[in-house]
Nucleic acid binder design. Structure first.
Lengths: 189, 189
DNA sequence: GTCTATAGGATGATAGAC
DNA sequence: GTCTATCATCCTATAGAC
């Protein structure tokens, strides 16, 4: 294991604590204590608490945006696109499971331009999934149900996967992808 | 509209603010200001901030427990039970949409016995759904996929419905129930 | 790169007047 | 039932010694 930079260490330590208690319930003293140093020492590596939050959230948000761009750039039908989306969601969840807690629960504590960037990325992302679902319904690949219900059901499952992945972490990622695609696409009946 | 008691007014005001920013980011001064009074006046009606949180969360948690008891008391097959669960989740979401934010995101800030009560109710609830799914698989009513994937997919969709219900609030509750049952049971294909 | 000390402000809660 | 005044504590962040 290569020794991570101090800044990286701060961010990963903070993300673990944010996941447990949320951004506002974790103090700079908490983060420092978990690292065995004093709160004031943190400021030698980061500009403040906000930098931790925006680094965490925007890094992962950009991963989602990249994943979506990859999917859109390929010649696939709607169902294949949705399968790919499910798969890269699972990949991102496995890689960034702690940061996803902050992204889901603490994004509203971002400030100014960071907040705007995040909201734009999130809305664009959602709109792209919405378009894919509507195209799929029009093409007869997806059942003609309310597109918003499909969109919501799919995204809420994928967005909260991080909460659940660790508990049942023994599950192989490929089995998870296969079963998740099956459950979301074909239901449980 | 009957004038709600001051205590009720505090709790509903707080729940709205908690939903926007989370328990720890909302101060007693914020709650008071939203009601047009001073923070110190709140303490004539409630014992403290913790009482607001535990009232909010435990009230809704008991609704879920009641709903589950109702379903378990009836002679239904597994699929019928799951349909009923989806339906009462939607009913609770419509009635308590703001409190559900606190239940989902701020339950870890409950203290002592309130925290224990909540965790017990949540775990019991989850275990009951798990048992129903496993029975359904055994009876051949539910597809033989990983029960934990089914459990998670269903509960994560239902638990975060509150986030989404208001945005698309025009949607009729009965249409929502019908489409949600269809999407969760039969998938989107 | 970490420390001690501390500034400057917000927070939950209480006491007591009206 | 609400107010003003206040306490004790916590918070983020900075200054400066080592």
């Amino acid at each position: 294991m290569k020794p991570a930079s101090r800044k990286t260490e701060i961010i990963t330590t903070a993300s673990r604590l944010f996941k447990e208690k949320g951004y506002n319930a974790v103090s700079m003293r908490d983060i420092a204590q978990a690292m065995g140093i004093k709160a004031s020492s943190l400021y030698n590596h980061i500009s403040g608490k906000q930098e931790i939050l925006s680094t965490l959230i925007l890094t992962v948000a950009r991963e989602f945006t990249n994943g979506m761009e990859q999917v859109l750039s390929k010649k696939l039908n709607s169902l294949q696109k949705i399968e790919k989306i499910i798969e890269f969601h699972i990949d991102i969840t496995v890689t960034y499971s702690e940061a996803l807690a902050a992204l889901n629960n603490d994004w509203m504590h971002l400030q100014d331009d960071d907040l705007k960037q995040f909201v734009t990325m999130r809305d664009d992302y959602e709109e792209n999934v919405r378009i894919i679902i509507k195209e799929g319904i029009k093409a007869g690949e997806i059942a003609p149900r309310h597109p918003e219900v499909i969109l919501f059901s799919m995204l809420s499952t994928l967005r909260t996967l991080y909460l659940w992945y660790e508990k049942r972490g023994k599950l192989d990622v490929n089995i998870l992808k296969r079963d998740m695609v099956a459950v979301l696409l074909k239901g449980i009946v």
